[in-house]
Simulated assay, not measured.
Amino acid sequence: MAKPEPVEPVSLRVATFNVSMDASNYLPNDKLVAEGAGALTHALADQHPQIQAIAEIIQHVRPDILVLNEFDYVPAEQGIEVFLKDYLAHSQRGESPIDYPYYFIAPVNTGEPSPFDLDQDGHASGVGNDAWAYGNYPGQYGMVVLSKYPLADDAIRTFRNFKWKDMPGALQPLKPGTQEPWYPAAAWQEFPLSSKSHWDVPVMVGDFALHLLVSHPTPPVFDGPEDRNGRRNHDEIRFWADYLQPHLSDYIYDDQGRSGGLAPQQRFVVAGDLNASVESTDNYPGTIAQLLQHPAVQAEPTPTSAGGSAHTPNNPHAATHTAGWRKRADYVLPSVYGTRVIQSGVFWPTVGQPKADLVSARQRSSDHRLVWVDLQLIAAE
Results as ranks from 00 to 15, higher is better:
residue 130 D to E: 02
residue 31 K to D: 10
residue 266 Q to S: 15
residue 346 V to W: 02
residue 257 G to P: 04
residue 264 P to A: 13
residue 274 L to W: 10
residue 178 T to P: 02
residue 40 L to R: 15
residue 167 M to D: 06
residue 155 A to E: 15
residue 293 Q to I: 06
residue 348 W to N: 10
residue 18 N to R: 02
residue 233 N to Y: 07
residue 243 Y to N: 04
residue 169 G to L: 05
residue 8 E to D: 07
residue 218 T to L: 06
residue 267 R to F: 04
residue 201 V to P: 04
residue 341 V to T: 05
residue 209 A to M: 15
residue 92 Q to G: 01
residue 164 W to G: 01
residue 376 Q to R: 12
residue 252 I to V: 06
residue 234 H to F: 09
residue 53 A to P: 06
residue 248 L to D: 05
residue 272 G to R: 08
residue 367 D to F: 03
residue 97 P to E: 11
residue 185 A to D: 11
residue 176 P to V: 02
residue 79 G to W: 04
residue 165 K to C: 06
residue 173 P to H: 02
residue 302 T to M: 10
residue 357 D to T: 12
residue 5 E to G: 05
residue 332 V to F: 09
residue 86 D to V: 11
residue 90 H to W: 14
residue 309 S to H: 12
residue 320 T to C: 08
residue 355 K to N: 04
residue 375 L to T: 04
residue 358 L to R: 05
residue 121 D to V: 00
residue 117 D to S: 02
residue 318 A to I: 14
residue 158 T to V: 00
residue 241 A to W: 01
residue 95 E to A: 02
residue 305 S to V: 11
residue 291 L to Q: 07
residue 130 D to P: 04
residue 327 K to Y: 14
residue 122 G to R: 06
residue 143 M to I: 10
residue 136 N to R: 15
residue 233 N to I: 10
residue 240 W to R: 03
residue 261 G to S: 03
residue 290 Q to K: 11
residue 153 D to N: 14
residue 258 R to T: 14
residue 27 L to Q: 10
residue 238 R to V: 01
residue 277 S to C: 12
residue 81 E to H: 09
residue 297 V to Y: 03
residue 98 I to R: 10
residue 184 P to W: 03
residue 238 R to M: 07
residue 113 P to T: 05
residue 42 H to C: 13
residue 66 L to K: 04
residue 263 A to T: 15
residue 55 A to L: 05
residue 360 S to A: 12
residue 74 V to R: 09
residue 371 V to R: 03
residue 188 W to Q: 06
residue 315 N to D: 15
residue 310 A to L: 14
residue 269 V to G: 02
residue 62 R to K: 12
residue 137 Y to F: 14
residue 31 K to H: 12
residue 99 D to G: 13
residue 7 V to T: 15
residue 286 G to N: 03
residue 144 V to E: 03
residue 139 G to R: 07
residue 201 V to H: 02
residue 114 S to I: 02
residue 372 W to T: 02
residue 210 L to F: 08
residue 36 G to Q: 03
residue 323 A to W: 06
residue 299 A to T: 07
residue 107 P to S: 09
residue 192 P to H: 00
residue 172 Q to A: 05
residue 250 D to N: 01
residue 331 Y to D: 12
residue 208 F to R: 03
residue 380 A to M: 06
residue 351 V to S: 15
residue 7 V to S: 15
residue 189 Q to G: 05
residue 17 F to H: 00
residue 233 N to L: 10
residue 350 T to C: 14
residue 353 Q to P: 12
residue 305 S to P: 12
residue 84 L to I: 10
residue 11 S to I: 12
residue 124 A to R: 00
residue 102 Y to R: 11
residue 87 Y to S: 07
residue 190 E to V: 01
residue 264 P to G: 10
residue 25 N to D: 13
residue 335 S to T: 08
residue 231 R to T: 05
residue 364 R to V: 14
residue 97 P to S: 15
residue 220 P to N: 14
residue 280 S to Y: 13
residue 192 P to M: 00
residue 280 S to M: 09
residue 34 A to C: 08
residue 326 R to E: 11
residue 324 G to D: 07
residue 99 D to W: 12
residue 57 I to Q: 01
residue 354 P to Y: 06
residue 8 E to H: 13
residue 42 H to F: 11
residue 282 D to T: 07
residue 298 Q to R: 10
residue 145 V to W: 01
residue 152 A to E: 15
residue 347 F to L: 04
residue 140 Q to W: 13
residue 187 A to Q: 02
residue 369 R to T: 01
